[in-house]
Structure formats: structure tokens, C-alpha cells
Design a protein around this nucleic acid. Sequence first.
RNA 1: AGAGAGGUGGCCGAGUGGCUUAAGGCGCACGCUUGGAAAGCGUGUAUACGGUAACGUAUCGAGGGUUCGAAUCCCUUCCUCUCUGCCA
Length: 423
Amino acid sequence: MLQVQRIRDHKEAFVKALKKRGMDATPVINQVLEADDNRRATQAKLDDLLAESNSLSKEIGILFKSGNAAGANALKEKTSTLKETSKALDDHLKSISKTLQDLLYTIPNIPQELVPSGQDENDNEQTLREGAIPVLEEGAMAHWELAKKYNIIDFELGVKITGAGFPVYKGKGARLQRALISYFLDKNTAACYTEYQVPHLVNEASGIATGQLPDKEGQMYHVGVDDLYLIPTAEVPVTNLFRGDLVQGADLPISCTSYTPCFRREAGSYGAHVRGLNRLHQFDKVEIVRIEHPDNSTKALEDMVEHVANILRALQLPFRILRLCGGDLSFAAAITYDFEVFSTAQDRWLEVSSVSNFETFQANRLKLRFKDTDGKNKLAHTLNGSAMALPRVLASILENYQTPQGIKIPEVLVPYCGFDMIN
RNA sequence: AGAGAGGUGGCCGAGUGGCUUAAGGCGCACGCUUGGAAAGCGUGUAUACGGUAACGUAUCGAGGGUUCGAAUCCCUUCCUCUCUGCCA
């Protein structure tokens, strides 16, 4: 959510930047400013009325104490009419504030200068491409065939006990999953991210603060009896750890990493591109989250991008980095870099990580502030990224490392797996 | 899950309808004092919104209600602690 004051100060620039998302923001911004004027005027009136009412109440108290009941009762008459007016104003204030907030909820974050304009993924800008695409032997298979051949992932078993999109990993497949999680967490903690283990269910307040609720309610699994939501990403519980906090400027940056399973209903997505591990209802992910001083968030984002790139280099997977265009940018992000690994057997790029700077957009909804050196409380910047999401990394390892003898394990993972070949 | 007790500022803690503008203490900051420190003394020390400002308004877990007036009374709800039950 954007702050009204910033919209007021940078109206023209914001409208221009939002054009990159293909959005004409002028009407909604005008509505916001109008609603805000209305809100302020209403509050000023209400405050005056309440002040009068408060002082009358005090007088009444004094009159009663001094035994002047008649005088007190006369004043009571006055306050009752004040009360009616203030009640009406209060209702109006609440409704106008709600209107204002609902309007603000519809405005996405302002894309940064670097973000290219564009409609969809075809307009994304490649900023880096690295790693040789392996040449596979004749008869190379997609990962879902490899999984069956080596008996390491069982999709049918998942269907039996739960449903489609809930795979069962077994034997070396399960061990490789655990190896990847440990490897990613070790890389992240070595880069000074503090490891957290967090609940996999969150309450409504957390869902609202990070923006999953109310808009994307249908995307999350909801446990009705206890009114809790299964997390779609560790971003939700980890970011909410700091909800409502006022941290000391010296404590920044705060860097966290957390492994969690992620649960997504993915309602309405079917087709050839969602086969195998490409899109799941439950998958594992290691997330990195940073809370930064506004002056430092651009640098922090660069660090995170470099960090993720280094993990892919270590795994020796061919990858590219895309700077998302305005149209492909998620609602809350000011700038996002996607990492895609080339899956040779499927002959397509698979998104394995997405690293974003949300600036104050999330922090405003979270009420996450810090005390700056000038003593003022300001909204912090939040950033997050996957480092990494497991299924597509696993898929591309299986596909790119396949040989007629079996699937080679990337060197850095061998100590974590305890074997160097799946065959 | 049942019974009981609670939730007050950065922390502890008083406060059962109006001198509460939340006492008092601790902590913290600044000043005085000192050769320097400690002690002592003094001053200050929440957040949000509105206002150029003076200042005003709101907030005592959250949300409603009663009242001219609520930290205080009533209702709902969340959380914590103790005992009982259940349990990896």
C-alpha cells in the first residue's frame, strides 16, 4: 500500500511510472486525494467537537462535586446534542477512511526507473545469461519420466493419499530434497542470513499484512475450524515476525532465511506446462528476507541477486536473469529479477527464483518502521527472494545431469547426499 | 478441553466512574555537581492522526455497549499464567 502523502507529493511522477504497468492511474489517484481531503476535514471537525464535549464533561464533574446539580443537568442537555453530531461525524470518518484504504489497496507499487515498460513476459529484459547448455544423449527424458525410471518421485502415490500436485519423494529422491534444503540454508547462513523455523499456518492478520488477504484468499488453503491459513511462502510468516515493530536504525539490516513447505491452491492452472514438478500444490522453498534502511535497499537487492546467481553457478546450471517489465511485475514489487534455469529435456526455461524490492509498499501495510539517525520514525524497506525453490531446481538437475549411466549429482551436493549418482 | 486468576508506557507497577493531564519506581538521554567516575540533584523520556504553529483528538490486549464522563461497569473476542484432563 502506498502512502497518501507520497502520492500527493509525487502525483505526476507516479502516474508516469505506473504507465509502465499499462495502467492509467490518474482517475484513482484523483479519487484518493479527494477522499483524503475529505478525511482530514472530517477529522478536524470531529476533533473540535470532541474537545468541546470533553471540556463540558469536566465542568459537569466539577458542578456535581460542588453540589450544583441543576447547573450540571443544564450542561448535560448540551452534550447530548454534541454527542449526536459527533457520532454522525465519527461514522462518516470511518466510512471515508475505509473508502480511502480500499482505493489505496487497488494501486500497485511504483515501478523503479530501471523497470522496462511492457505487457507480459515477452517484454522482460535479460540482464545476464550464463552457463553452457549441456548436449544430451539421444533419448534424453523429461524429469517426470526420469523420476519414474529411477523410482525417486511418485506422483500417483501422492494422488492416492492427497491429490494431484502433491508428489511423494522416496529413496534418493527424498535424500536429494533434504540435501538441497540443507545446502541452500548453509549458503544463506554463510551470507549472514539468520535461520528461522516458523509456523506453517498463519492467522488472518498475517495474511492481511503481507497482502494475501483479502484479494488472494482463493490462493491459500484455509483451515476453517481454527481460521488459519497454510502459508503459500515463508515470506508470510517471516515478514510478519516484524509486523508493527519499531526497530532501531542501528539494528538494520535484518536478514532472515527460512525453509518451509509452501501450499498453493493454484486454482485454474492446468495444461502441458504444469506437468511433473513444474507446478505443485505443495513444494519446498528456502526463502531470504531482508529489512533495510531505504538508502541501502538498492544495494541490498544487488547483493541478493548476486547471492542467488552464485548458488546457480555452484550447481553448474545454465541460467539467465530477467528484469521483469512493468506488466509482469507483481502488485507489491517495485522491481523484480527472475532467475530461470534452462531445462534441456523440456527445452524451456524454468523460473527457480524471484528476487524483489518492495521498498515501503509492504512495510506500510505491516507498520514496520525504524528510528532513523535524525530521531524520526520511518517505514523500512523490505526485500525478499527465493534461494531457492526446490522443485524446478530438482527438475533441471535431473534433466541436465542425466547420462546413459544415470543422473550425476552436482559436485557441491555430493557431501549432502552421501552418493554421487542416481541409477 | 474444564475451573480459576490475569493483560496498564521501553520494563516493573499503582489505579473499582470525574484533581489521571495514567501515581511511584527502574532503565535511558541531557544538564548540575566532580580532578575523573559513582552517588546525589534537576530536566526530559510512547505512538498515530489533524494543524504552519500553539495545540487538539485517539490509544490502558482487540472490538462493541452503558454514561454528560470509562483504564475502572457490561457484552463479545484474543492472548498469558495456575490447577485438572489429554498428549509427541
